[in-house]
Simulated assay, not measured.
Amino acid sequence: MDISLLLSTTDRAAPLAAPSVMHPESWQLCAQVESWARGRGLVLGDPDTSPLGRARCERLAARVFPDAELGAVDLFARWLTWALALSDTLDHPPLADSGSAVHGLYDDLLRAMRRGHARPGARPLEAALVELWPATSRAMSRDWRRRFMLHLEAHRDGCAEEAVNRRIGHTPEPAEYAPLRRRACGPFLFDLIEPVLGVELSPRLLRTPDWKTLADSVADVVAWANDLASHDLESGRGDVHNLPAVLAAAHGVDIARAGDMVVEHIEDRLEAAWKAARRLPDMLDRLQLTVAQRAAAAQVVKVLLDTPRAHLDWLAESGRYESQGTPSSIRLDALASLR
Protein backbone atom coordinates (compact mmCIF):
# COMPACT_ATOMS: atom_id res chain seq x y z
CA MET A 1 0.00 0.00 0.00
CA ASP A 2 1.52 3.35 -1.02
CA ILE A 3 0.85 7.01 -1.59
CA SER A 4 -0.42 6.43 -5.14
CA LEU A 5 -3.68 5.05 -3.73
CA LEU A 6 -4.25 8.32 -1.90
CA LEU A 7 -3.31 10.42 -4.92
CA SER A 8 -6.00 8.67 -6.94
CA THR A 9 -8.61 10.45 -4.81
CA THR A 10 -7.65 13.80 -6.36
CA ASP A 11 -9.22 12.65 -9.64
CA ARG A 12 -12.37 11.27 -8.03
CA ALA A 13 -13.18 13.72 -5.22
CA ALA A 14 -13.79 17.32 -6.30
CA PRO A 15 -12.74 18.83 -2.91
CA LEU A 16 -9.28 17.31 -3.41
CA ALA A 17 -8.83 18.38 -7.02
CA ALA A 18 -6.87 21.61 -6.52
CA PRO A 19 -3.38 21.31 -4.96
CA SER A 20 -2.89 23.14 -1.68
CA VAL A 21 -1.14 26.49 -1.54
CA MET A 22 2.15 26.90 0.30
CA HIS A 23 2.81 29.88 2.61
CA PRO A 24 5.09 32.31 0.71
CA GLU A 25 7.52 32.49 3.64
CA SER A 26 7.60 28.76 4.32
CA TRP A 27 11.32 28.57 3.57
CA GLN A 28 11.97 30.31 6.89
CA LEU A 29 10.05 27.73 8.89
CA CYS A 30 12.25 24.70 8.27
CA ALA A 31 15.31 25.96 10.10
CA GLN A 32 13.22 27.57 12.87
CA VAL A 33 11.16 24.47 13.65
CA GLU A 34 14.10 22.08 13.35
CA SER A 35 16.19 24.24 15.67
CA TRP A 36 13.34 24.37 18.19
CA ALA A 37 12.77 20.60 18.08
CA ARG A 38 16.47 19.92 18.56
CA GLY A 39 16.77 22.47 21.33
CA ARG A 40 13.88 20.87 23.22
CA GLY A 41 15.24 17.34 22.79
CA LEU A 42 12.36 16.15 20.63
CA VAL A 43 14.64 15.37 17.67
CA LEU A 44 18.07 13.90 18.35
CA GLY A 45 20.91 13.41 15.88
CA ASP A 46 20.44 13.45 12.12
CA PRO A 47 16.78 14.28 11.36
CA ASP A 48 16.72 11.69 8.56
CA THR A 49 17.27 8.88 11.07
CA SER A 50 13.89 9.27 12.81
CA PRO A 51 10.27 9.41 11.62
CA LEU A 52 9.79 12.68 13.51
CA GLY A 53 12.86 14.25 11.93
CA ARG A 54 11.71 13.19 8.46
CA ALA A 55 8.15 14.40 9.01
CA ARG A 56 8.68 18.01 7.87
CA CYS A 57 5.90 19.35 10.09
CA GLU A 58 6.56 22.90 8.96
CA ARG A 59 5.48 21.90 5.43
CA LEU A 60 2.08 20.76 6.69
CA ALA A 61 1.66 23.93 8.75
CA ALA A 62 2.56 26.10 5.76
CA ARG A 63 0.01 24.28 3.60
CA VAL A 64 -2.82 24.41 6.15
CA PHE A 65 -2.22 28.14 6.81
CA PRO A 66 -0.89 29.68 3.57
CA ASP A 67 -2.12 33.18 4.49
CA ALA A 68 -1.57 33.35 8.25
CA GLU A 69 1.04 35.40 10.08
CA LEU A 70 4.34 33.54 9.96
CA GLY A 71 4.85 33.46 13.72
CA ALA A 72 1.46 31.80 14.17
CA VAL A 73 2.25 29.21 11.48
CA ASP A 74 5.55 28.51 13.24
CA LEU A 75 3.66 27.94 16.51
CA PHE A 76 1.32 25.47 14.80
CA ALA A 77 4.30 23.63 13.29
CA ARG A 78 5.79 23.31 16.78
CA TRP A 79 2.52 21.87 18.07
CA LEU A 80 2.50 19.38 15.19
CA THR A 81 6.06 18.38 16.03
CA TRP A 82 5.14 17.93 19.68
CA ALA A 83 2.03 15.92 18.80
CA LEU A 84 3.98 13.55 16.54
CA ALA A 85 6.68 13.15 19.20
CA LEU A 86 3.94 12.25 21.68
CA SER A 87 2.43 9.81 19.17
CA ASP A 88 5.79 8.10 18.66
CA THR A 89 6.16 7.71 22.42
CA LEU A 90 2.66 6.28 22.84
CA ASP A 91 2.89 3.90 19.88
CA HIS A 92 6.07 2.13 21.03
CA PRO A 93 7.10 0.16 24.13
CA PRO A 94 6.76 0.53 27.03
CA LEU A 95 3.57 2.58 26.53
CA ALA A 96 2.20 0.85 23.41
CA ASP A 97 0.35 -1.89 25.29
CA SER A 98 -0.23 -0.31 28.70
CA GLY A 99 -3.27 1.86 29.27
CA SER A 100 -2.11 2.73 32.77
CA ALA A 101 1.26 3.90 31.43
CA VAL A 102 -0.53 6.15 28.92
CA HIS A 103 -2.55 7.68 31.74
CA GLY A 104 0.60 8.09 33.82
CA LEU A 105 2.39 10.01 31.06
CA TYR A 106 -0.63 12.19 30.47
CA ASP A 107 -1.03 12.87 34.20
CA ASP A 108 2.48 14.32 34.18
CA LEU A 109 1.75 16.43 31.10
CA LEU A 110 -1.57 17.82 32.33
CA ARG A 111 -0.19 18.60 35.78
CA ALA A 112 2.69 20.48 34.18
CA MET A 113 0.24 22.55 32.10
CA ARG A 114 -1.78 23.47 35.18
CA ARG A 115 1.36 24.12 37.23
CA GLY A 116 2.93 26.25 34.51
CA HIS A 117 6.36 24.62 34.56
CA ALA A 118 8.00 21.25 34.04
CA ARG A 119 9.44 19.19 36.84
CA PRO A 120 13.23 19.09 37.24
CA GLY A 121 14.56 16.47 34.88
CA ALA A 122 11.22 16.11 33.09
CA ARG A 123 11.11 14.43 29.71
CA PRO A 124 11.29 16.72 26.63
CA LEU A 125 7.56 16.29 25.93
CA GLU A 126 6.70 17.92 29.24
CA ALA A 127 9.19 20.77 28.93
CA ALA A 128 8.10 21.58 25.36
CA LEU A 129 4.40 21.50 26.32
CA VAL A 130 4.70 24.04 29.11
CA GLU A 131 6.42 26.36 26.64
CA LEU A 132 3.78 25.92 23.93
CA TRP A 133 0.72 26.22 26.14
CA PRO A 134 1.03 29.79 27.44
CA ALA A 135 2.17 31.06 24.04
CA THR A 136 -1.02 29.60 22.56
CA SER A 137 -3.63 30.16 25.25
CA ARG A 138 -2.86 33.62 26.60
CA ALA A 139 -5.22 35.40 24.18
CA MET A 140 -7.94 32.73 24.29
CA SER A 141 -11.02 32.57 26.49
CA ARG A 142 -11.61 30.24 29.40
CA ASP A 143 -14.13 28.30 27.25
CA TRP A 144 -11.51 27.69 24.56
CA ARG A 145 -8.87 26.62 27.10
CA ARG A 146 -11.33 24.21 28.69
CA ARG A 147 -12.23 22.75 25.27
CA PHE A 148 -8.56 22.24 24.45
CA MET A 149 -7.96 20.46 27.75
CA LEU A 150 -10.98 18.23 27.21
CA HIS A 151 -9.62 17.26 23.79
CA LEU A 152 -6.25 16.45 25.32
CA GLU A 153 -8.05 14.17 27.77
CA ALA A 154 -10.00 12.59 24.89
CA HIS A 155 -6.69 11.93 23.16
CA ARG A 156 -5.33 10.33 26.33
CA ASP A 157 -8.38 8.08 26.62
CA GLY A 158 -8.25 7.07 22.96
CA CYS A 159 -4.57 6.20 23.11
CA ALA A 160 -5.08 4.27 26.35
CA GLU A 161 -7.89 2.26 24.71
CA GLU A 162 -5.61 1.48 21.76
CA ALA A 163 -2.94 0.31 24.18
CA VAL A 164 -5.38 -2.07 25.87
CA ASN A 165 -6.49 -3.39 22.46
CA ARG A 166 -2.87 -4.18 21.59
CA ARG A 167 -2.34 -5.99 24.88
CA ILE A 168 -5.42 -8.21 24.52
CA GLY A 169 -5.12 -8.63 20.74
CA HIS A 170 -8.45 -6.95 19.94
CA THR A 171 -9.12 -5.59 16.44
CA PRO A 172 -11.85 -2.91 16.64
CA GLU A 173 -15.00 -3.22 14.55
CA PRO A 174 -15.46 -0.45 11.94
CA ALA A 175 -18.22 1.30 13.92
CA GLU A 176 -16.07 1.17 17.05
CA TYR A 177 -12.94 2.25 15.23
CA ALA A 178 -14.14 5.57 13.76
CA PRO A 179 -14.74 7.44 17.06
CA LEU A 180 -11.71 5.75 18.65
CA ARG A 181 -9.44 6.89 15.83
CA ARG A 182 -10.89 10.39 16.01
CA ARG A 183 -9.89 10.62 19.67
CA ALA A 184 -6.46 9.06 19.18
CA CYS A 185 -5.58 11.30 16.22
CA GLY A 186 -5.08 14.46 18.28
CA PRO A 187 -8.45 16.31 18.30
CA PHE A 188 -6.79 19.21 20.14
CA LEU A 189 -4.87 20.06 16.96
CA PHE A 190 -8.07 21.29 15.31
CA ASP A 191 -8.66 23.67 18.24
CA LEU A 192 -5.39 25.37 17.31
CA ILE A 193 -6.93 26.76 14.12
CA GLU A 194 -8.51 29.53 16.20
CA PRO A 195 -5.42 30.95 17.95
CA VAL A 196 -3.43 30.69 14.70
CA LEU A 197 -6.07 32.82 12.94
CA GLY A 198 -6.60 35.07 15.96
CA VAL A 199 -10.31 34.24 16.23
CA GLU A 200 -12.61 32.25 18.48
CA LEU A 201 -15.73 30.29 17.61
CA SER A 202 -19.04 30.78 19.35
CA PRO A 203 -19.76 27.95 21.82
CA ARG A 204 -23.32 27.87 20.52
CA LEU A 205 -22.08 27.13 17.00
CA LEU A 206 -19.85 24.32 18.24
CA ARG A 207 -22.87 22.57 19.76
CA THR A 208 -24.86 22.40 16.49
CA PRO A 209 -25.18 19.09 14.61
CA ASP A 210 -23.91 20.61 11.35
CA TRP A 211 -20.73 21.87 12.97
CA LYS A 212 -20.10 18.50 14.57
CA THR A 213 -20.62 16.76 11.22
CA LEU A 214 -18.20 19.14 9.52
CA ALA A 215 -15.51 18.85 12.19
CA ASP A 216 -15.82 15.07 12.62
CA SER A 217 -15.84 14.45 8.86
CA VAL A 218 -12.65 16.44 8.29
CA ALA A 219 -10.99 14.71 11.24
CA ASP A 220 -11.96 11.32 9.82
CA VAL A 221 -10.63 12.14 6.35
CA VAL A 222 -7.28 13.22 7.79
CA ALA A 223 -7.06 10.19 10.10
CA TRP A 224 -7.99 7.67 7.41
CA ALA A 225 -5.64 9.15 4.83
CA ASN A 226 -2.92 8.91 7.45
CA ASP A 227 -3.93 5.28 8.03
CA LEU A 228 -3.31 4.46 4.38
CA ALA A 229 0.11 6.10 4.45
CA SER A 230 1.17 4.45 7.72
CA HIS A 231 -0.38 1.01 7.19
CA ASP A 232 2.75 -0.85 6.09
CA LEU A 233 4.86 0.41 8.98
CA GLU A 234 2.14 -0.25 11.53
CA SER A 235 1.28 -3.71 10.22
CA GLY A 236 4.99 -4.53 10.33
CA ARG A 237 4.92 -4.13 14.11
CA GLY A 238 1.57 -5.89 14.47
CA ASP A 239 -0.55 -2.80 15.11
CA VAL A 240 -4.12 -3.12 13.79
CA HIS A 241 -5.16 0.46 14.58
CA ASN A 242 -5.51 1.63 11.01
CA LEU A 243 -8.59 1.52 8.84
CA PRO A 244 -7.31 -0.85 6.12
CA ALA A 245 -6.56 -3.53 8.73
CA VAL A 246 -9.91 -2.95 10.46
CA LEU A 247 -11.88 -3.25 7.21
CA ALA A 248 -9.89 -6.28 6.04
CA ALA A 249 -10.67 -8.11 9.30
CA ALA A 250 -14.34 -7.06 9.38
CA HIS A 251 -15.16 -7.92 5.75
CA GLY A 252 -12.77 -10.79 5.12
CA VAL A 253 -11.04 -9.07 2.19
CA ASP A 254 -7.38 -8.70 1.29
CA ILE A 255 -5.50 -5.53 2.14
CA ALA A 256 -5.63 -4.20 -1.43
CA ARG A 257 -9.44 -4.31 -1.46
CA ALA A 258 -9.49 -2.83 2.05
CA GLY A 259 -7.39 0.07 0.77
CA ASP A 260 -9.94 0.72 -1.98
CA MET A 261 -12.68 0.68 0.64
CA VAL A 262 -10.81 3.28 2.71
CA VAL A 263 -10.67 5.58 -0.33
CA GLU A 264 -14.44 5.15 -0.74
CA HIS A 265 -14.96 5.99 2.94
CA ILE A 266 -12.79 9.10 2.54
CA GLU A 267 -14.83 10.27 -0.43
CA ASP A 268 -18.08 9.79 1.52
CA ARG A 269 -16.77 11.77 4.50
CA LEU A 270 -15.56 14.57 2.24
CA GLU A 271 -19.02 14.85 0.77
CA ALA A 272 -20.54 14.94 4.27
CA ALA A 273 -18.15 17.73 5.30
CA TRP A 274 -18.99 19.90 2.31
CA LYS A 275 -22.74 19.33 2.69
CA ALA A 276 -22.54 20.40 6.32
CA ALA A 277 -20.50 23.46 5.38
CA ARG A 278 -23.10 24.50 2.80
CA ARG A 279 -25.79 24.37 5.50
CA LEU A 280 -23.87 26.56 7.93
CA PRO A 281 -24.95 29.99 6.59
CA ASP A 282 -28.58 29.20 7.49
CA MET A 283 -27.40 27.94 10.87
CA LEU A 284 -25.49 31.17 11.49
CA ASP A 285 -28.66 33.13 10.70
CA ARG A 286 -30.72 31.07 13.13
CA LEU A 287 -28.12 31.50 15.88
CA GLN A 288 -28.10 35.28 15.29
CA LEU A 289 -24.34 35.47 15.66
CA THR A 290 -22.51 38.79 15.54
CA VAL A 291 -20.62 39.93 12.47
CA ALA A 292 -17.33 39.06 14.19
CA GLN A 293 -18.57 35.59 15.14
CA ARG A 294 -19.75 34.92 11.59
CA ALA A 295 -16.40 36.06 10.19
CA ALA A 296 -14.55 33.79 12.60
CA ALA A 297 -16.70 30.84 11.57
CA ALA A 298 -16.07 31.52 7.88
CA GLN A 299 -12.29 31.62 8.41
CA VAL A 300 -12.23 28.38 10.40
CA VAL A 301 -14.50 26.60 7.91
CA LYS A 302 -12.16 27.52 5.06
CA VAL A 303 -9.18 26.04 6.91
CA LEU A 304 -11.11 22.89 7.78
CA LEU A 305 -12.20 22.32 4.18
CA ASP A 306 -8.68 23.01 2.86
CA THR A 307 -6.99 20.71 5.38
CA PRO A 308 -7.62 17.32 3.68
CA ARG A 309 -5.80 18.34 0.48
CA ALA A 310 -3.04 20.09 2.45
CA HIS A 311 -2.57 16.91 4.47
CA LEU A 312 -2.55 14.77 1.33
CA ASP A 313 0.13 16.95 -0.27
CA TRP A 314 2.16 16.75 2.94
CA LEU A 315 1.92 12.96 2.95
CA ALA A 316 3.37 12.97 -0.57
CA GLU A 317 6.41 15.00 0.47
CA SER A 318 6.94 13.87 4.06
CA GLY A 319 9.27 11.02 4.90
CA ARG A 320 7.56 10.15 8.17
CA TYR A 321 6.16 6.83 7.01
CA GLU A 322 9.18 5.63 5.07
CA SER A 323 11.91 3.34 6.26
CA GLN A 324 15.22 4.99 6.99
CA GLY A 325 17.19 5.55 3.80
CA THR A 326 16.56 6.92 0.35
CA PRO A 327 13.02 8.18 -0.23
CA SER A 328 10.95 5.96 -2.48
CA SER A 329 10.54 6.78 -6.14
CA ILE A 330 6.78 6.75 -5.61
CA ARG A 331 6.97 9.63 -3.14
CA LEU A 332 9.37 11.62 -5.30
CA ASP A 333 7.20 11.20 -8.38
CA ALA A 334 4.14 12.25 -6.43
CA LEU A 335 5.89 15.29 -5.03
CA ALA A 336 7.08 16.36 -8.47
CA SER A 337 3.52 16.21 -9.79
CA LEU A 338 2.27 18.44 -6.98
CA ARG A 339 4.67 21.31 -7.49
Rank of each mutant, 00 (worst) to 15 (best):
F190M: 11
S100G: 10
A295Y: 04
H231C: 14
A85R: 01
T49A: 14
S318W: 01
V196M: 01
V240R: 07
D313K: 02
H311F: 15
L44D: 13
A223V: 00
A61I: 06
L338D: 04
A101I: 05
H117V: 13
R257V: 15
T49R: 12
P209D: 09
S35D: 14
V222M: 07
A13K: 02
H265E: 15
L197R: 02
A272V: 08
E173K: 10
T290E: 14
G45I: 08
R142Q: 15
S323K: 11
A310G: 07
A14V: 14
A297R: 03
L95D: 05
V300F: 05
H265A: 15
V130C: 07
H23E: 05
D260A: 12
A160K: 02
R38C: 11
P308Y: 02
G99A: 09
S100I: 11
D48P: 07
E161V: 08
D227V: 04
A229E: 07
D97N: 11
E34F: 13
M113W: 04
S235H: 07
E161A: 15
L95H: 08
H251T: 10
Q299F: 08
A336N: 10
Y321H: 13
D88R: 04
R146H: 13
E58R: 05
D48G: 12
T171A: 09
Q299M: 13
L80K: 01
C57Y: 04
A272N: 07
S98P: 03
H311V: 08
V130Y: 02
D210V: 14
D254F: 05
L304G: 00
V21S: 12
A245T: 09
G252H: 05
R119K: 10
A248Y: 00
T9E: 05
L304A: 09
E317N: 10
S8F: 04
R56Q: 15
L284I: 12
D67S: 14
A298H: 11
R309W: 05
W79Y: 08
F76K: 00
S230M: 02
A256C: 10
V253F: 03
A249S: 13
V303Y: 03
L205I: 05
T326I: 13
V246H: 00
L7K: 00
T89S: 12
G238I: 06
R339H: 12
T136D: 01
S20W: 01
R59I: 14
F190P: 00
R142G: 15
G325L: 08
A248E: 05
K212R: 14
R257Q: 15
R181C: 00
R40S: 12
K302F: 10
G116R: 05
R142Y: 06
R56E: 15
L338I: 09
A160M: 06
E161K: 06
F188M: 12
W36T: 05
A31I: 10
D239R: 02
A14S: 11
P281K: 02
M140T: 09
L80Y: 02
K302C: 14
C30N: 11
D216F: 06
E194W: 03
P15E: 04
Q288G: 11
R279H: 13
K302R: 15
G236L: 08
E317C: 14
P93W: 04
T326W: 11
I3W: 01
D333C: 10
E271L: 14
A68L: 07
E58G: 07
R111P: 00
T326D: 10
